[in-house]
């Protein structure tokens, strides 16, 4: 009952399999982190130097940001795991509704007619 909810545990109930699974998960997370760092580096280099033509810089770095966005959500925030159907629904809806919002506020301010 209620009393036990504030009590620490002596040990973990994790089985050996679960432990191995967790260690593997940890390695994946660290790999994801390394990947994110390199994406960030790439974005900064692409902007700071002239490696890719200036016209492509914006779509390129926005694309990198989107990849990082998914890495964060699916790996660091565990959206890829099971039992995350409703969180996924909320985030997908949020992103889906954010898109027209951003586009409208950026473009449809009456300065250029569409």
């Amino acid at each position: 009952m209620g009393e036990n909810l504030s009590q620490p545990f002596e040990k973990s109930a994790m089985s050996k399999d679960e432990r191995i699974q967790l260690e593997r998960e940890k390695r994946i997370q660290i790999t994801a982190f390394a990947f994110m760092i390199s994406l960030t580096l790439l974005a900064f280099i692409a902007t700071g130097s002239e490696i890719i033509p200036a016209v492509f810089t914006v779509p390129f770095i926005v694309g990198l940001a989107v990849i990082q966005f998914f890495l964060q959500l699916f790996y660091f925030m565990h959206l890829k795991d099971k039992n995350h159907a409703w969180p996924n629904m909320m985030m997908v809806s949020g992103v889906f509704l954010s898109t027209p919002t951003i586009i409208a506020l950026a473009l449809l301010l009456g300065e250029t007619k569409f």
Binding site: M1, F9, E10, K11, S12, A13, E18
Partner: peptide, 12 residues
């Protein structure tokens, strides 16, 4: 009623 089984250890 949330009954917690303390003997088994912390759930994963």
């Amino acid at each position: 009623a949330d009954s917690v089984d303390m003997t088994k250890g912390l759930p994963s």
